[in-house]
Design a protein around this nucleic acid. Structure first.
Lengths: 224, 224
DNA sequence: TAGATTGTTAATCGATTAACAATC
DNA sequence: TAGATTGTTAATCGATTAACAATC
């Protein structure tokens, strides 16, 4: 597979392609053109062809793309067939919700253990995932090759726990703590789920729309 | 406040500015230059000045920016002082976690009610938020001006519930369902939290790094 | 006043879109 | 074969960066 200087924008679109291709599969559609795909995703056909061409030639002239084949390619590009292993740190409300409801295996990731400091959860099992003591974390990381740490601890614990993780070979953190983890010196990959950023963007767009409406109304007022 | 043709990229950076300004406030820093701010956020000073200049003139030559003043401006731009009202639909694991742990009021949003179909949760209260029957939703929306619906229902319910929401005046949906809601005809604002998209991006970056390492190793192999 | 730093205009860079030859 | 649609090269558009006069 090609993989050269792919822009962030392209990468962020890949999961959307995957989602749409799964939807088409469900609908029994086996063939799709960049034209149709673009229509359904609100993108131009050009962009879609450009995006895929970063990684190879997945289509066929005069025909378009074979949905299952393209789906497999996108999945491979995203690393879904690499069986990454993950642990989850912090079995609070969000952590618990993720263990119970988020189907890691659907996305090619195996969640093998969770960690917490609370005695009442240590030793229990949620959705087949055992909850171990936080004290066992370093040893566990040393003995198992863990690629991803799902970080769902309280704010204060975010940085200390991150230091343990990076100190024991974890290369990627899926961060739910709303704390900016990316330290300049560190080379760990961080992907943030910032709930508040998302809500605030929405709040911005609502405000923008409201202001536009108000401005329009004001203009009408002045005129008539 | 100015508010003209602001690009999506700028808007997505605003919450990060807010977060950093709050951090500086906590540290007792009252003054910051675009230089320093850029350093801490990994952005160029130019970009930061450009971004703010979309909305007004918040700085002072030779001095920089007054942190509390700038913070207030950014908060206002994001609509945090507009007291938007929200309801949450679907008190499952994630919905419950949000009610209990996500501090809506910190971001200027009031969560006034939650809705569900399960008899065992209807009538209960979490974190002062009452859980009402799904059947009451239309009436509730008619009688209260709700700006935002937090959608945390199971996949299958996503579209039917969305129709109820848009049919009763909700203009914005904060979507946790991993279902593409944005219908072409609808004018409702949708902001998605796609956990899987985020995890897959991370998976991509891990794979990219692994491939680079492998390629480097292969080159070394060939040479010596 | 001299130094610092803004807001803004111009230059650069990168991403998206358009066009089209290649070909199924 | 004729029509359709790709992959890719060129053109356009927009976003980021650099430069600098204005000014605190």
């Amino acid at each position: 597979m090609k993989r050269l200087k792919v822009s962030n924008n392209v990468i962020r679109r890949l999961p959307r392609y995957l989602r749409k291709l799964d939807e088409l599969t469900e609908q029994g559609v086996t063939r799709v053109s960049s034209q149709e795909l673009g229509q359904q995703l609100g993108l131009t056909p050009s962009q879609i062809r450009q995006d895929f061409s970063c990684f190879g030639e997945f289509g066929q002239q005069g025909y378009g793309y074979h949905v299952p084949a393209l789906r497999a390619q996108v999945a491979a590009i995203l690393g879904m067939d690499r069986n990454y292993r993950a642990v989850l740190i912090g079995v609070g409300n969000i952590g618990h919700a993720l263990i119970d409801n988020f189907c890691f295996s659907d996305w090619g990731v195996r969640l093998t253990a969770a960690f917490d400091v609370k005695p009442e959860v240590i030793g229990t099992t949620f959705n087949k995932v055992p909850v171990l003591s936080m004290e066992e974390l370093p040893r566990y990381l040393d003995e198992n090759e863990i690629d991803i740490a799902v970080l769902t601890v309280p704010k204060d614990a975010a940085l200390p726990v991150t230091r343990i993780l990076t100190g024991h070979g974890v290369e990627a953190i899926w961060n739910f703590t709303n704390v900016e983890l990316t330290e300049p010196n560190s080379s760990v990959l961080v992907e943030n789920i910032h709930f508040s950023d998302s809500l605030l963007s929405l709040s911005y767009y609502i405000s923008e729309r409201a202001d536009e409406k108000a401005a329009k109304a004001a203009r009408r007022e002045r005129k008539g």
